[in-house]
């Protein structure tokens, strides 16, 4: 719960500093997915700890000294919000001036994310994909438990009538909103990462309220696994296609006759790839944890 509030708080913090895109992501991740993951992990790992703190005083001293040194370091930093800080004077100025004409879309965050630094983003998507592969290896290897699990550890909320009715109305809207965020990412805040997380949050909510088995029947893990890989492939594939048109990897300018239109298409497609991978990854991670928790509870 506290983690959820913390996530929401930092999201509003980001809005106050003009980072709407980031706030979007943090709201969905920090307030939605992260606490749920924590909860399911806690059901497996046990809620209580033995209070065996080790040398807290030495640690406190170390932390205090490090903090003091860091604060000393900030004294040389440019003041908060100063327009001529070094961070704003190099490449960022070019992004701000040139991206509206070069890429032709209003949201600079999207154009930097999906065009100027598309290679970076490809790396991040691959990291997400790799993390999912790791989670799946760790949690679903060994005996296959999820297949037959009528009883469910994360079904504790099943009896809440109001929650179920309200969420039944909300989940379609959430999915619709995710799609809007996905395809409107060039004009307003949004894009593949946010849309994927929102989409996944909707499905996870469904799984929490109606049971893992039902959610898995609606969206099969095997399909999700394929989709997670497909998203990365789609992203990388766009790069290969741009190779074939005779320009650099992930340079979309020749995907259409008009370079600006070509970039538009490229951004749309790779954002779609990002969205698919992120959504599939988040749902898969949740399935893995929840399925593992279920298996454990049954075994005990």
């Amino acid at each position: 719960m506290l983690a959820g509030i913390y996530g929401l708080l930092s999201a509003s913090f980001f809005v106050s500093m003009d980072a709407v895109d980031v706030a979007f992501t943090e709201a969905a991740v920090g307030a939605g997915v992260f606490p749920l993951l924590m909860l399911t992990a806690l059901t497996v790992a046990g809620r209580y700890e033995q209070t065996a703190h080790r040398r807290p005083r030495a640690a406190f001293f170390l932390v205090l000294v490090t903090g003091a040194l860091l604060i000393l370091g900030t004294l040389d930093m440019p003041p908060f919000g100063s327009p001529d800080a070094p961070a704003h004077t190099h490449v960022a100025a070019r992004y701000i001036q040139a991206s509206p004409t070069e890429i032709g879309i209003p949201n600079m965050v999207t154009s930097v994310l999906a065009d100027y630094r598309a290679f970076d983003t490809l790396g991040e998507v691959v990291v997400v994909f790799t993390a999912v592969v790791g989670v799946l290896i760790l949690l679903t290897s060994g005996e296959q438990r999820q297949q037959s699990s009528p009883a469910n550890a994360v079904e504790t909320m099943r009896s809440h009538m109001i929650l179920r009715v309200v969420s039944k109305m909300l989940i379609p809207l959430m999915l619709l909103f995710a799609l809007y965020v996905q395809f409107h990412g060039e004009y307003g805040p949004g894009g593949g990462f946010q849309a994927g997380v929102i989409f996944a949050a909707a499905i996870i909510l469904y799984a929490m309220l109606f049971g893992l088995a039902k959610a898995q029947a609606a969206i099969k893990p095997s399909i999700l696994r394929l989709l997670a890989a497909f998203g990365v492939l789609l992203y990388g594939g766009v790069g290969v296609v741009s190779f074939l048109t005779g320009v650099n990897y992930l340079d979309y300018s020749r995907l259409a006759a008009d370079p600006v239109a070509g970039r538009h298409i490229g951004i749309l497609v790779i954002e779609l790839g990002v969205g698919i991978t992120v959504a599939a990854a988040m749902i898969l991670i949740f399935y893995a944890f929840a399925g593992y928790a279920t298996g454990r509870v049954e075994a005990e």
Binding site: L37, A87, Y95, D120, V127, L138
Partner: peptide
Amino acid sequence: SNPLPHVLILTAIVVGIATMALALALVV
């Protein structure tokens, strides 16, 4: 405002939750 840090952090949040999930899986 400078869009570049936004891009970096936007992706870092999603990557962060994915790696956090991996860490939790290890703990489990």
